[in-house]
């Protein structure tokens, strides 16, 4: 089963609408996921997932209770890099925690690193490559690979955004940097459980800025084509069976 996780309903709106024979599954007595098929692939669509804490817990639970072959995190993000604009689509090339500082807890730990884990979580190349291809086929808009900095602060202060944008390590991963709320939690689970994971999101605003409704319309416009691209990607991977448990990190 493929797991699609979004923050709110609009994030998963398209996927729900294309699910065949959808059924409701109640997760932990609180979350109402829809299970159906997309491109003949059994898919679970989950919404109302906020912060890495929740995304990590739910991903773990679902992995333990269902056979999950791939997790896709969809939704919105904020651009830290000046090169990114509202409406741009970004794919995760690597993911880092933006709100972790365990330097003092264990010698040798770097900024953003949970002790015992890598500082950044790389997405398997094959995933990014295939999704990239699907996007090329379907989406007219700009889409790029980016580093996802994941933080449970919904709206980062401008100072913190400034710090992230100047972080040499993060810049060395990819010059396109975005901020989101949930991807790092899933990346950590993926690391532990060896379930592949990729995030693909739409830029809704410059980091630290307020999103106007007009900008939101631009985001919403991209959901359908992005959704199509993701469906296409799902179709492709189910055919080619490119998923490998224990993929490269």
């Amino acid at each position: 089963m493929i797991l699609i996780i979004g923050t709110n309903h609009d994030d998963v709106l398209y996927y729900e609408s294309i699910l065949s024979s959808p059924k409701e599954e109640v997760i932990l007595d609180k979350y109402h996921a829809l299970v159906g098929t997309i491109a003949s692939q059994e898919t679970m669509v989950l919404q109302d997932v906020y912060t890495s804490y929740l995304s990590g817990i739910l991903a773990t639970y679902i992995i333990n209770h269902y056979f999950i072959s791939l997790i896709i995190n969809v939704g919105r993000c904020e651009a830290i890099s000046d090169s990114l604009k509202v409406g741009d689509i970004v794919l995760s090339e690597s993911i880092v925690f933006g709100d972790v500082d365990q330097i003092a807890s264990l010698k040798g730990t770097t900024l953003g690193q949970i002790p015992g884990y890598p500082r950044s979580f790389a997405v398997p190349n094959n995933l990014t490559r295939n999704l990239y291809t699907s996007l090329e086929k379907i989406v007219d808009k700009r889409f790029v690979l980016a580093t996802f900095v994941s933080s449970s602060f919904f709206r980062q202060s401008k100072e913190r955004v400034g710090e992230i944008s100047k972080d040499e390590y993060i810049n060395s991963l990819n010059q396109n940097i975005v901020l989101d709320g949930e991807s790092a939690g899933i990346a950590l689970v993926s690391q532990l459980t060896h379930v592949p994971f990729i995030a693909v999101k739409v830029v809704e605003a410059k980091a630290g800025n307020y999103t106007s409704l007009e900008d939101y319309l631009l985001v919403l416009d991209e959901y359908a084509p992005l959704g199509k691209a993701v469906s296409n990607f799902i179709g492709e991977i189910s055919r080619t069976d490119i998923l490998r448990i224990g993929g490269k990190f």
């Binding site: 709110n8 609009d10 398209y14 939101y216 919403l220 359908a224």
Partner: peptide, 15 residues
């Protein structure tokens, strides 16, 4: 931001 709908409109869908 949480109550958008999908309009089917033939072969294409849009939010």
């Amino acid at each position: 931001k949480d109550i958008s709908l999908v309009k089917k409109g033939g072969t294409t869908k849009r939010a």
